[in-house]
Design a protein around this nucleic acid. Structure first.
Length: 850
RNA sequence: GCGGGAGUGGCGGAACUGGCAGACGCGCUGGACUUAGGAUCCAGUGCCCGAAAGGGCUUCGGGGUUCAAAUCCCCGCUUCCGCACCA
């Protein structure tokens, strides 16, 4: 439990009489009874869809980070409503997945039982926070009526040949005999039993997201998203322009015998021939081909067996075995270069010289072709490797200097041996590269690929870092993948009429040593007839990735009750794409990329008219606590319940928005909430005290209109902290000493506060005689003439130093301004003669140089 | 290593397009009201010199551009986040 150090004011002695507990309860009830937060999806004009990333309903309850995100979205949504939009602000629960399953395993209760409890708790907490949610459209990804359509989406991808079976590495615990997620691997060992984890290859389902890489990348140029997020996506997609270069293996005939024996049984003869002849490498530096001194293949490269000579076979085998034993996490961490020579040679197509073929785990099978040409002179990793194994290092790129341009670049002495790889490509030219000597790196890339292409040795190619999306999970708590395996028909999709494939409610959902997925033990469930031929067949026993559940939930909200289709086309046309999406940057890549991909596929399949799901996305910042990151182990996690109880939801919300710039986050400090609470106390008091007699004061009204302008400008830009500061500033004017505010001075302030502190705003609105909900009363308009100042204060600088200020009309001319400034003795004493130079910006500054 | 941010009082943070640095809030100091104050109200609060008037200094450090720089340019330092042997 977190200790809340500061107590709220004791309401008995509270002069303003503001009791948030009473006010908030009252209005939450009223909203529910009157349906204030219900959205007229059918008839509402000017639809505005304000989406927040739905939470995973953990047993700990709502995290303050969730509330930070939701409140920011709620303010935005309420503001849009006050501007005359019909706003839809739905919520749901992302309740499938490894988190729930692991927690269920820990406490020994089936997740199907736990999740509804957690959701009930979340619902209570969300309601206590005063969010403008239309609860009639709540959804949970674990509801069969929802995941029926998650499965339907899988089949849509399958139909379009975008879902396929492939082998992929997983973390495997040999003791528990189970697959582990990356986060369950701690320092290379199973988090449950401490056994060293191995990598294993399993047949899994993949989505061909790489086919969409170019579109996913291109659209980033026009969607209105936080730049940090689009940058993260660009990096993740990782487009590289380069070339595929073919190296012919030497003494091919001799090796053919070895190939047939050694190669994987999966390979057909045709594949074998193609593979055994050539090694394809991907490079972004085809210009350095004359410096390619050796080839390196990934240890699991399918050609390795075929290439390896008898003398090297034992060593190669041992190296591959070690590499395979390494888990996926530690393999990426270890940096020292290791490797083994296969005994084989390939021909460098540029030089015609034979170069050795090595295997090493610094080459990854997953990227490019799983093989590289090593250019130790111009690549850090290759350089390091060459140093370790004493391989030759040759320079083929050299700095372009005025001197070097005129000498014979073939002259070796001109360029001493490399102490480190030479990486500059800007002011450099080629050397030791025959007819390409003197070419710039850029020109050489094109020229060399074109030259090699004449003999079929190379082609330009684009490579992506993005991999296909592996959607299989060897787990219990997820939607079963809707596929059936039949001996005769192969894999057969479950007919749409048979959806959903319901997750069986089993007592024993624990992984044990019997097999891979817990569902593989439920024979009564997985044994089914083949939908095509009727022969006995078997269901897929893996479930799909949680990211698939969340990749389409925003499509379901407006059609949440639709039984026979995933979403209604009319509703979808009216409400989508989402107008505003707010969420954390932890989802900058996976969730946001996957949902874009699924949307594009559904668009191509004719189900959607748009191909980008979120017109606008803004990433909010992270909150820390008293300067430190919040974590369970530190015990410094903010529990929203406690703060809402002690300070009220309105104060808590407003404080969250005040503690820092929304898109950057900030430091949550217990002591500081008091300031926001005081502000609301004073707002309450101002309304109670307000006089109806007489006229509002002109200067105060001027400040009010300036405040309306500021708040109206700040909210759409999510600059909530400065909007609140502006309202506080106005409050200070309103309640300057000995002053009784006029109702007209207060009413608009209550409206400005309403998106931040909705309960107190409703209450005060009612007390001021407002009819109906304040959220149906519109937004105060700002009158520029009322906000304009008659006189403005202008700073006067002499030789760049501030020497005083003068009050001037905003449109006063330069001469008059100088005269007015010099009339001030405090300024005049620094100006002895006539000023040498005068810079005057009306309404801003007067700068004199003497 | 690569990519993206950020460095401003005791603290969280303001500052539009280069134009009065420190808005707003916390904390702190003094006062009023009080049996009391961890409530409320009033005043003060960047640092240094000075009794004051006044003056000097100040936005991570160092240079530069400009009448004028937290803001623009160059060099360096620190720090947070993401990706990480991606050829």
């Amino acid at each position: 439990m977190t200790e809340v150090t500061q107590s709220p004011p004791d309401s008995a002695n509270e002069p303003s009489g503001y009791d948030p507990a009473v006010v908030e309860k009252k209005w939450q009830t009223q909203w529910e009874e009157r349906g204030t937060n219900h959205t007229d999806l059918d008839g509402g004009a000017r639809p505005f869809y304000a989406l927040m990333m739905f939470p995973y309903p953990s047993a700990e309850g709502l995290h303050v980070g969730n509330l930070f995100a939701f409140t920011g979205n709620d303010i935005y949504g309420r503001f849009q409503r006050l501007q005359g939009h019909t706003v839809f602000e739905p919520i749901g629960f992302d309740a499938f997945g490894i988190h729930s399953e692991n927690y269920a395993l820990k406490v020994g209760i089936n997740p199907a039982e736990l999740i509804p409890r957690n959701i009930a708790n979340f619902r209570r907490q969300l309601k206590s926070a005063g969010l403008m949610i239309d609860w009639r459209h709540e959804l949970s990804t674990t509801d069969p009526a929802y995941y029926k359509w998650t499965q339907w989406i899988f089949l849509e991808l399958y139909k379009r040949k975008l879902a396929y079976r492939g082998r992929a590495a997983v973390n495997w615990c040999p003791k528990d005999k189970t697959v582990l997620a990356n986060e369950q691997v701690i320092a290379g060992a199973c988090e449950r039993c401490g056994t060293k984890v191995e990598q294993r290859f399993l047949e899994q389902w993949f989505f061909r997201i790489t086919e969409y890489a170019e579109r996913l990348l291109a659209n980033l140029d026009w969607i209105d998203w936080s730049e940090s997020t689009t940058t993260a996506q660009r990096n993740w997609i990782g487009r590289s322009d380069g070339a595929e270069i073919v190296f012919r293996v030497q003494d091919l005939l001799e090796m053919a015998g070895a190939a047939t024996v050694g190669l994987n049984v999966m390979a057909t003869t045709a594949e074998l021939n193609a593979l055994a002849t050539d090694i394809k490498v991907f490079t972004t530096r085809p210009d350095t081909i004359f410096g390619a001194m050796y080839l390196v293949l990934a240890p699991e490269h399918p050609l390795v067996d075929a290439l390896t000579t008898d003398e090297q076979r034992a060593e190669v085998g041992a190296y591959r075995a070690t590499a395979a034993k390494q888990d996926l996490v530690t393999r990426k961490v270890s940096k020292e270069k290791t490797g083994v020579f296969t005994g084989a040679y390939a021909i460098n197509p540029a030089t015609g010289h034979p170069i050795p073929i090595w295997i090493a785990d610094y080459v990854l099978m997953e990227y490019g072709t799983g093989a590289i040409m090593a250019v130790p002179g111009h690549d850090e990793r290759d350089f390091e490797f060459a140093k370790v194994f004493g391989l030759p290092i040759v320079r083929v790129v050299a700095p372009r200097t005025a001197h070097a341009a005129h000498v014979d670049s073939q002259n070796r002495d001109e360029h001493p041996p490399l102490e480190e790889p030479y990486l500059d490509t800007e002011n450099a030219h080629l050397v030791h590269s025959r007819q390409f000597n003197g070419f710039s790196v850029e020109d050489a890339k094109h020229a060399i690929v074109a030259w090699l292409a004449e003999h079929g040795h190379a082609k330009r190619i684009v490579n992506y870092r993005l991999h296909d999306w592996c959607v299989s999970r060897q787990r219990y708590w997820g939607p079963p993948i809707p596929i059936i395996y039949c001996d005769k028909c192969g894999h057969v999709p479950v007919p749409e009429s048979d959806l959903p494939v319901e997750l069986p409610n089993v007592d024993d959902f624990r992984p044990d040593d019997s097999g891979i997925s817990p569902l593989a033990r439920v024979e009564s469930w997985y044994r089914v007839p083949c939908p095509q031929c009727g022969a006995p067949a078997r269901r897929e026993t893996d479930v799909s990735d949680t990211f698939l559940d969340s990749a389409w939930y925003f499509l379901r909200y407006p059609s949440s009750d639709l039984p026979d289709r995933p979403f209604d086309s009319r509703m979808t046309k009216k409400w989508l794409p989402v107008n505003s999406y707010i969420g954390g940057n932890e989802h900058a890549v996976l969730h946001l990329l996957y949902s874009r991909f699924v949307t594009m596929v559904l668009h191509d399949a004719g189900h959607l008219e748009f191909e980008e799901p979120y017109a606008k996305f803004r990433a909010h910042g992270m909150i820390i606590r008293e300067g430190a990151k919040m974590s369970k182990s530190r015990g410094n996690v903010v529990n929203p319940d406690e703060y809402i109880e002690r300070w009220g939801a309105d104060s808590f919300r407003t404080y969250l928005m005040f503690l820092g710039p929304y898109e950057e986050g900030g430091d949550f400090r217990d002591q500081s909430i008091a300031g926001v609470r005081r502000f609301l106390d004073r707002l309450w008091a101002s309304t109670q005290d307000a006089r109806r007699k007489g006229e509002p004061e002109e200067a105060v009204m001027r400040k009010l209109h300036q405040t309306i302008r500021k708040v109206s400008d700040d909210i759409p830009r999510l600059q909530y902290n400065t909007a609140i500061a502006a309202m506080m500033e106005y409050m200070n004017v309103l309640r300057a000493k000995e002053r009784t505010p006029h109702v007209d001075e207060v009413r608009s302030l209550v409206q400005l506060v309403s998106p931040f502190a909705p309960h107190i705003a409703e209450e005060l609105w009612e007390r001021l005689g407002g009819r109906g909900s304040i959220f149906d009363a519109g937004w105060p308009t700002f009158d520029p003439t009322l906000a304009a100042e008659e006189l403005v204060t202008i700073a006067v600088q002499v030789n760049g130093k501030l020497r005083g200020t003068v009050r001037l009309a905003p449109d006063m001319g330069q001469e008059d301004a100088v005269t007015a400034a010099l009339a001030d003795p405090g300024i005049a004493k620094f100006v002895l003669g006539p000023p040498k130079k005068v810079v005057y910006k009306p309404g801003r500054i007067l700068s004199l140089s003497v």
